[in-house]
């Protein structure tokens, strides 16, 4: 488990980094926290010719709130989302979801943008990004573009990023008033990839659900937002009926693959169970106006 030979570059600025990417294209691979890339290198499953280490780029180390958006630079470690109290207020779903990512040691190194760019279909942060409608900022020599999360994930481990682009920032919209959020997942062991995970958001007003968000991890080749289930929830005047309808919708629509840990059938069952549980939790948070993740 030693990697094959690769060239190592550690640019100090975004401009230098995108220059390297422009020169090497698909032969280059960006290293941030290394929690996925380094094992892949050591297993010789990944064989980039050039590893572009962005850990020297101080300009990418920011976590700020700006005009209704939480901006997470590419060097921000996952641990900061749970450590910095403001995240719990601004994007509570993110603060809750991140605690399911591996273990503290992994979150101390792993970056938020790294997890998004790696695009593991069972990972938590991509599902959270899809649920809240995050936007991903890609930088290349030809400029900057923003990609909505739902268009960003195109397949397992595959994103809309071009080989010459660097994901420099993820932007998460701050939660609106009356919203409550919850992230739940089932894994046999805490910290594993989810057998199934659900990110849920509910906007409550006058004792009714006005709006909802539901996105799933481990339920398909990419994180899935399930608008049918959201609609089913909002359409029902009775909350419990709505929750049941949303759960049934999840079971009906999702077609996850089975693997050694869970059959497709079990995953669909879990999606339905977690849909109901997450919606109830999100509802309780929305209707008590606390909005978000409780520690």
């Amino acid at each position: 488990m030693k990697p094959p030979v690769f060239d190592y570059q550690d640019p100090a600025s975004v401009e230098e980094a995108v220059d390297v990417l422009a020169r090497h294209g698909a032969a280059a691979k960006v290293l941030a926290g290394g929690q996925s890339l380094v094992p892949l290198l050591n297993l010789r499953l990944a064989r980039p010719e050039v590893v572009v280490d962005i850990n020297r780029i101080d300009a990418l180390d920011y976590l700020t709130e700006e005009s209704g958006w939480l901006r997470v630079g590419a060097r921000v470690r996952q641990r900061r989302l749970e450590r910095e109290g403001d995240v719990r207020r601004t994007v509570p779903l993110l603060a809750e979801a991140v605690r399911f990512v591996g273990h503290p040691q992994i979150r101390n190194r792993g970056t938020v943008c790294g997890s998004l760019a790696h695009a593991d279909p069972a990972a938590e942060l991509p599902a959270a990004a899809v649920a809240v409608g995050a936007r991903l900022v890609a930088h290349s020599r030809s400029g900057i573009r923003e990609i909505p999360a739902e268009e960003f994930f195109t397949g397992p481990l595959t994103t809309a990023l071009r080989p010459d682009e660097l994901l420099v920032e993820a932007r998460f919209p701050c939660t609106g008033p009356d919203w409550g959020w919850a992230f739940l997942e089932v894994s046999n062991r805490h910290g594993d990839y989810a057998l199934c995970g659900v990110a849920a958001g509910v906007r409550a007003r006058d004792g009714r659900v006005q709006d909802a968000r539901l996105a799933y991890a481990g339920a398909g080749p990419v994180p899935v937002r399930l608008r049918q289930a959201e609609v089913a929830l909002v359409e029902h005047a009775d909350l419990e009926e709505g929750i049941r309808a949303a759960a049934a919708e999840a079971r009906r629509v999702l077609r996850p693959d089975g693997d050694l840990h869970a059959s497709s059938e079990f995953r669909r069952h879990l999606a339905a169970v977690l849909t109901a549980r997450a919606l109830r939790l999100a509802w309780s948070r929305a209707s008590t106006c606390s909005g978000g993740a409780h520690a």
């Binding site: 046999n188 062991r189 805490h190 910290g191 990839y193 050694l260």
Partner: peptide, 16 residues
Amino acid sequence: LLSGSFMDFHIPTAVE
């Protein structure tokens, strides 16, 4: 062997 790494061979931790 499909579960040939600690990603898939789940040794319980202090949590479990």
